[in-house]
Computed example of a mutant assay.
Amino acid sequence: MAGGSSRVDERALGAGTTARFTLLVALLVATSSVMLLYIALALTATDGLSCTLAAGADPGTDPAANVMARRSLQWEAYAACSERYAPPPSGWWLVGWWALLAACTAALFWALPAWKARRGRVVVPLAAVDRDGEIGRTVAELSATAGLARPPRVVVDPAAASAGAVVFGRTGRATVCLHGGLVVARTTDPGWFRAALLHELAHIANRDVTITYLTVALWRVYAAVAVPPFLLWGAWRFSTASGARLWSADAPIVTRGLLVTGLLAVLVYLARSDVLRSREVYADLAAVRWGADPEGASTAGSRWPGRR
């Protein structure tokens, strides 16, 4: 931002969190779909080795390498037999799977703000601690600076000693929660108070509150609903099939599935972290653009909002 020659618009599609969130959703859909397909194939392909007879191999006497070679050479006969007696899973498996994940994500998305506000903390309305109305006027002033049509709802967590704040809820219904330490900082370090408040207001102005909670909900549903069944599938394959005649040929397939899906899971985690981190960076940029001076507040370099 030196010299003001260039400025990143945190609300732009390529600069903000929207593109990153889209990538996260695409990775989640792809990875969870791959996981389901592995499980669905294991549950529906019940014919086992019988169709290898149609390919001209005897799974009871032929070596595993010969069986696999016959399946490849006589793939038309093997595929016709498999389609009739061990058909691939229906596309409705994926539709139902996506519907389940979407329903779980929606339920968690709606529950997270309420949980955030009530997780063992006692929050009070701003008026309960702002007797002279000075904080309310500051909030209204900075909300206008941030381009908000009206100030957001503000509550205070008196038990929180940190000089910070957090915004939760959804776009259009966001709530800013000021920590007790930040309320004290209004008089001891007004520069920091304005910087921290502008940072939270930037989240509302950037319309990233909904994306944030959707990101958290998507990740938790993915980790709690999609990943465990796949891990159970991998454990089941290794525990029950290791003694099978064709395990030497099937083992690379199972191992590849675990490795590829594990890599995709890592990419999902990185995309999730990128969404959450980038929103903090762009909120910092907006706060500075609106007049916050991170160097002007005491020790601001170590506690600038985006670094929390």
Rank of each mutant, 00 (worst) to 15 (best):
M1S: 10
G4W: 02
V8T: 11
D9T: 02
R11I: 00
A12H: 09
G14I: 00
A15R: 00
T18A: 08
T18M: 05
F21Y: 11
L23K: 00
L23D: 09
L24H: 09
V29Q: 01
V34S: 09
L36W: 03
Y38L: 08
A40S: 13
L41E: 10
L41Y: 05
L43A: 09
D47K: 08
D47R: 08
D47N: 06
G48F: 07
G56D: 06
G56H: 03
P59H: 03
P59S: 06
E76G: 01
Y78E: 14
S82A: 11
P89F: 10
G91Y: 12
G91K: 05
W93R: 06
G96D: 11
L100H: 04
L100N: 03
A103L: 10
T105H: 03
A106G: 02
L108A: 06
F109A: 04
A111I: 01
A114C: 01
W115S: 05
W115V: 02
K116Y: 11
R118G: 09
V123D: 14
V123Q: 09
V124Y: 01
P125I: 02
A127E: 15
A127I: 01
V129Y: 01
D130F: 01
G133V: 00
G133E: 05
E134W: 08
A140Q: 04
E141L: 00
L142M: 06
A144Y: 00
R150D: 11
R153T: 02
V154A: 03
A159G: 07
A159H: 05
S162V: 05
G164A: 14
F168N: 14
T171Y: 03
G172I: 05
T175W: 03
T175G: 07
C177M: 15
L178R: 04
L182P: 09
R186I: 01
R186M: 05
T187Y: 03
T187R: 14
W192G: 13
W192K: 12
W192F: 11
R194L: 04
L198Q: 09
A205S: 11
A205L: 06
N206R: 04
R207N: 12
D208H: 06
V209P: 08
Y213V: 07
L218W: 13
W219E: 13
A224G: 09
V225H: 01
L231Q: 07
L232K: 01
R237Q: 15
R237P: 12
F238K: 05
A241F: 12
A244R: 13
L246N: 11
L246H: 05
L246A: 08
D250G: 08
D250I: 10
A251W: 12
P252Q: 08
I253C: 00
G257K: 10
G257Y: 11
G257D: 15
L259E: 15
V260T: 10
R272T: 13
L276Q: 14
L276G: 09
R277Q: 14
R279M: 11
E280H: 13
E280I: 08
Y282E: 15
Y282I: 12
D284S: 10
D284Q: 14
V288C: 09
V288Q: 14
R289L: 08
P294T: 08
A297E: 14
S298I: 08
S302A: 13
W304R: 13
R307W: 13
